[in-house]
Nucleic acid binder design. Structure first.
Length: 315
DNA sequence: TAAGATAAGAGGGACAT
DNA sequence: ATGTCAGTCTTATCTTA
């Protein structure tokens, strides 16, 4: 039964002879008596007008936030409007309010009812926390989320720790996208034992049949180079040394950080730039001994006759 | 003070059993 | 699954320039 005030807001639709009301939020026109939806407007994906500021874009955009894999429900689950008003804007009766409250509770529980959903919810919480700590770009975050969902679908999580699988997904996302992050860095951001993360990671790439690109030492070089004060010229030389090391196959099986730092160090020596092993080791997250071993190896195996290399042992 | 050497121990990959 | 082996990395300590 409708109050007359509501009927006053209605329009008479001449073709159907119904009292109809328009709900701009839902983009629908429906009959006030039976709720039949008479018009469903097609959703336009473009923004209304050109927007020149972020705020304008926000206001004029017709769509919400993009669907995201790093939200446990991809941001798409149904939420019952907490406002205690009906579709016409009328205040609900106490009884209806109570009913809606009950429905809301049931709804929010049912969202997390399936064990898979609860699992994802936990996992995405972990993922976002880890990604924040590691300052991972959003693309990696989404990639990790996709990997995790695959793992879940392949039943790789049941009986194993969620955090472990999430950590492994993050590492796998970094590896597969050539983002220079070591397992160690992931481990530090997660607080899990390295061993466990490595085990989960192996399980992941084996079971999901993922092919990982070989870690790109050059990216590590850029990463380290950005942390120490070394000229671009020297960095370019380091890059050259690294290319040579790559050709001579002395890179595989070693910490890319160590080799990159070693080539940077030797480049400094040749260019007569001041940069201690200690600094570089710190920037590259390797020990001085580890760095020295790489330096020694590069000195022994790279061509010694190129310009500047005759005396690339610093006094 | 920075660089280099050496030793001992841990952990993981490759391979065979 | 478990064990062995070679190679790497880390920690610690000492020597050298």
């Amino acid at each position: 039964m409708l109050a007359s005030s509501v009927r006053a807001q209605c329009e008479r639709d001449d073709r159907t002879g119904r009292d109809v009301i328009e709900d701009p939020e839902a983009g629908e026109v429906f009959c006030v008596r039976c709720g039949l939806v008479l018009v469903q407007r097609p959703i336009t994906l473009q923004a209304e007008r050109r927007a020149f500021t972020a705020e304008e874009a926000q206001q004029r955009s017709r769509t919400g936030a993009p669907s995201r894999f790093s939200m446990y429900d991809k941001g798409l689950s149904t939420v019952i409007d907490p406002a205690a008003r009906d579709a016409y804007g009328r205040v609900l009766s106490a009884q209806t309010k109570a009913t809606m409250q009950r429905l809301r509770r049931l709804q929010s529980r049912s969202n997390l009812n399936e064990s898979v959903d609860r699992n994802l919810f936990q996992a995405m919480l972990h993922l976002n926390r880890i990604a924040d700590r590691m300052h991972l770009p959003d693309t990696i975050r989404q990639r990790a989320a996709v990997i995790y969902r695959k793992a879940l679908a392949a039943d790789l999580v049941r009986g194993r720790s969620i955090l472990g699988t999430v950590s492994a997904s993050v590492y796998a996302a970094c590896r597969s996208s050539e983002t220079p992050r070591t397992l160690k860095e992931v481990v530090e951001a997660t607080g899990m034992p390295k061993k466990a993360v490595a085990r989960h990671y192996r399980l992941l790439i084996n079971s999901l049949d993922m092919k990982m690109p070989y870690p790109d030492t050059f990216r590590y070089l850029s990463k380290i180079g950005s942390k120490v004060d070394v000229s671009m010229k020297t960095q370019a030389l380091a890059r050259q040394l690294l290319t040579e090391a790559d050709e001579k196959k002395i890179i595989p099986g070693k910490d890319p950080n160590g080799i990159a730092a070693a080539s940077l160090y030797l480049a400094c020596v040749i260019e007569n730039e001041k940069c201690t092993q200690e600094e570089l080791a710190k920037a590259a997250n390797v020990t001085e001994v580890g760095l020295r071993n790489r330096i020694r190896e590069l000195r022994a195996r790279l061509r010694p006759d190129a310009p500047g290399r005759a005396h690339w042992t610093r006094a």
